[in-house]
Write a protein that binds this DNA or RNA. Structure first.
Length: 432
RNA sequence: GUCCGGAUAGUGUAGCGGCCUAUCAUGGAGGCCUGUCGAGUCUCCGACCCGGGUUCAAAUCCCGGUCCGGACGCCA
């Protein structure tokens, strides 16, 4: 290993000891008699100081020829120095250029000149060198890590389901067709059917964090053609129970980020407000009424328009659930109420800005499921692999899917979903 | 897909018929400078998206294309 210390592992008290730091040449400031090389690694910055009078000529020459953003390894001695940032500087004995950077750079990494998101996405490898961008992905990591912790503690087993599937079964959203040897196949739009199979499969509580693909030609700041879905499915519990799991999960994730991501939040200028549980529940009827009262053009039976979603969100002002949806605008596997089958045991979990999650208690009766599929205009034959599991002992079960990118962007107050994906896939962007 | 706005050095911008040999910042090259920390300072370098049109004259106006941003639509 070349590195002995990250920048943040060095303290002024280490005065006199020798270390090797590795990173990118953030800036070189040559003042004539004294030259400063600022090296940036994942954690922070280190000032390397060269005095013309005492430094080895070759070392000075090397440093003066380093281009910005080149990768360097610097070995030297820590010197406690009040005039230096962080109270210390590194007096080099050896400076190596491990990866030279060409010039000019495709974007500024120092924060002096902002680049457009489009420019940044074209050179994401350089954009992620910036503390701002890196903080987003460090928080994304914290979120996913805390979700695994939380669900693990709640008895959920992490599973992985196929992303290449045989048929465009669920209807609705468009799928990406692909070639699978001599057959046509599709990229999976959701792990829905597979996680349900595992309820019949006896795993009782499962979750998956994985990619989903949707071939919709949407062009908005909250849609992606490849997104990350956080999905759970659990047996012997109803939609109310999984709503409690969901709101507690969101609260846990926020608390966890607040606790462990303070420096990243600060870099992003975010003051995190931890949502209070339980989240407010409003029925679909109430949601429509709020939208209408706010002057929106929407009728009972419609899915929420973008404007209604914003309008209701503004009225509520915090995370909330919309429950008791019309059965006909929810998928076939949502369980209708026994005494009022036009409504179903489905819910959406909303942030004031957008929908974050939707879920339901599922239909677990084979006959009902089959007729629901047909009612929604789908061909039940394509669902054989799925329906079969309902014929040999399927427990009652419920679950939800939560959009990871939406959770992250609403948490951080980021406007464009592309900002929170390393390499976003949208209508126009397929590379990098 | 519809509507609106936009595209100027590597990056981010000003200019919106002649004053453009195109502004400013950042950057790059080369000087000066022993405490910089968005260093300072001097000199130089580097751009009007593509195609067509209008005009004596186009970065600027018009048409088409491509791409970008926003709103909406689409989105089990």
């Amino acid at each position: 290993m070349i590195r002995t210390h990250y920048s943040t592992q060095i303290t002024p008290e280490m005065n006199g000891s020798s270390v090797t730091i590795c990173g990118w040449a953030h800036e070189i400031r040559d003042l004539g008699g004294i030259t400063f090389l600022v090296v940036r690694d994942r954690e922070g910055l280190v000032q390397v100081t060269l005095f013309k009078k005492t430094i080895d000529k070759n070392v000075l020459e090397t440093v003066r020829n380093i281009s910005r953003e080149s990768v360097v390894a610097v070995t030297g001695n820590i010197k406690k120095e009040a005039k230096a940032p962080n109270g210390y500087e590194l007096i080099p004995t050896k400076v190596e250029v491990l990866g030279k950077a060409e010039s000019p750079l495709p974007m500024d990494t120092t924060g002096k000149v902002d680049a457009d998101l489009d420019t940044r996405l074209d050179v994401r490898f350089m954009d992620t060198r910036r503390p701002y961008t890196q903080s987003i992905f460090r928080i994304r990591h914290l979120i996913l890590k805390s979700i695994r912790e939380y669900l693990g503690r709640e008895g959920f087993i992490e599973i992985t389901t196929p992303k290449v599937v045989a048929t465009a079964t669920e209807g609705g959203t468009a799928l990406f067709p692909i070639t699978y040897f001599e057959r046509e196949a599709f990229l999976n739009q959701s792990p829905q059917l597979f996680k349900q199979l595992m309820m019949s499969g006896g795993l009782d509580r499962v979750f998956e964090i994985g990619p989903i693909f949707r071939a919709e030609e949407h062009d908005t700041r909250k849609h992606l053609n490849e997104a990350t879905s956080i999905d759970i499915e659990a047996s012997f519990i109803d939609h109310e129970d999984v709503m409690v799991i969901l709101e507690n999960l969101v609260k846990y994730v926020y608390s966890n980020v607040a606790e462990n991501g303070g420096s990243y939040l600060k870099t992003l200028g975010v003051e995190l407000k931890i949502p209070e549980t339980p989240f407010k529940r409003i029925t679909y009827d109430e949601a429509i009424k709020i939208a209408c009262d706010n002057g929106e053009q929407i009728e009972w039976g419609d899915d929420l328009t973008t404007e209604s979603e914003h309008s209701i969100g503004k009225t509520i002002g915090e995370h909330y659930f919309i429950v008791d949806w019309p059965s006909k605008i929810k998928p076939f596997y949502a369980m209708p109420y026994e005494n009022k089958p036009e409504l179903c045991r489905a819910f959406d979990m909303m942030h004031p800005r957008m929908e974050l999650s939707s879920g339901a208690q599922r239909v677990h009766s084979y006959e009902l499921l089959r007729s629901r599929i047909t009612e929604q205009g789908l061909n039940a034959d394509g669902f054989d692999f799925y329906l079969k599991a309902f014929r040999y002992g399927m427990p009652p079960h419920s679950g939800w899917g939560l959009g990871a990118e939406r959770l992250l962007m609403t948490m951080l107050g980021i406007d464009n979903i592309r900002e929170v994906v390393l390499f976003p896939r949208d209508r126009k962007r397929l590379s990098p």
